[in-house]
């Protein structure tokens, strides 16, 4: 089972969360992961650690102690200034080999989804992708639940023999919980060859247009073909601005050329899970729904009460969007009064 000799599972202890450092700050998903890791660690009665890789981290690592970490392992090195799969995975693998955690969680972000499979392959263990729920079984194994088949199916997965048991977790699914510890930050020095990489990062260009940062947004206002033409799409952008959120779109809208493809939500676009997803004039084709059904609150505005988008809505508005949206914009502008 699991390719060759089973790992000596008993010698692995503790739950780890991989924390992400981006553009000079600890990324929010790190606190979510750490809170999940803390909960699992408590359930197993073991300790909980975070790993932070980057350059010029200063004392920011200690922020992670406030979310339940007993230890934060920090590797601060100029080669970690930009993400590369090779340097990141060698660092993490080296730390895992030294400390042998039994569970390792990382964010299902563009960083985690890229290098964590390499870590799993180097450590020769299993990896469950994109989990939305984590628990500990009666036997003490990690129960990893995730959507598959575009969200039509949920699967619970275990990794009985490989160690650590590894999972990536969708951003915004776990709740960050403040749980300050008298933990410690441990700076780790690794041999130089760990940082060598065949890949050269030439340029990192952050998306200037924050409206396109879909995966990060807490609020996404999305428009569909029901808006009829490009000028009308400005209503969607206006609403997004009021919420300080991002603009999403169905594929039809992208195909019409009203917005660039970076805004497309769905199977061939982006998968998002904001606090609020508002679908305006979107029918709710399955290829769209798979990209947004993880959202906490889904508001659908559509004149057709049978539109499938209402099946995944937490709040449904059957109305003509040309009446409803301007009135709603007006209401928000007016505020409390």
């Amino acid at each position: 089972v699991g390719s060759g000799a089973p790992t000596d599972a008993a010698s692995y202890r503790g739950v780890w969360a991989f924390a992400e450092w981006r553009h000079g700050r600890v990324h929010a998903v790190s606190y979510e992961l750490l809170s999940a890791a803390r909960r699992l660690a408590d359930k197993k009665g073991v300790s909980c650690a975070a790993v932070l890789l980057g350059e010029n981290l200063r004392d920011r690592a200690s922020e992670l102690l406030r979310y339940g970490a007993d230890v934060v392992y920090v590797v601060d090195h100029p080669a970690l200034r930009h993400f590369t799969d090779e340097a990141y995975s060698r660092c993490l693998v080296e730390l895992v080999r030294r400390h042998k955690p039994e569970i390792l969680l990382a964010g299902a972000t563009s960083i985690g989804r890229s290098f964590i499979p390499r870590v799993a392959a180097m450590l020769q263990t299993g990896l469950t992708a994109d989990c939305t729920d984590l628990d500990i079984s009666d036997e003490g194994l990690l129960l990893q639940t995730r959507p598959a088949f575009g969200g039509n199916v949920m699967a619970t997965i275990i990794c009985p023999y490989g160690r650590p048991q590894m999972a990536t977790v969708r951003p915004r699914v776990m709740r960050p919980v403040l749980d300050p510890r008298n933990g410690r930050v441990e700076s780790v020095t690794l041999p130089e060859e760990v940082f060598r990489t065949r890949v050269q990062v030439l340029q990192v260009i952050p998306e200037e247009d924050t409206t396109a940062k879909l995966s990060e947004a807490e609020v996404i206002i999305s428009g569909g073909r029901g808006l009829q033409k490009a000028e009308n799409f400005r209503m969607v952008e206006e609403l997004a601005r009021l919420f300080k959120g991002a603009v999403g779109a169905s594929r039809s809208v992208v195909e019409e050329g009203w917005v660039p493809v970076s805004h497309q939500v769905g199977q061939t676009g982006q998968t998002v899970s904001p606090t609020l997803y508002m679908a305006i004039g979107i029918s709710g084709a399955i290829q769209h729904i798979v990209g947004m059904q993880g959202s906490k609150i889904v508001v659908a505005v559509n004149k057709d009460p049978e539109a499938p988008i209402f099946d995944v809505a937490s709040c449904g508005v059957v109305a003509d969007l040309f009446e409803f949206v301007p009135a709603f914009i007006e209401r928000i502008r007016r505020g409390e009064s």
Partner: peptide
């Protein structure tokens, strides 16, 4: 990426 665009060699 989640953050924007990267160019690699």
């Amino acid at each position: 990426t989640d953050e924007g665009i990267e160019e690699w060699r």
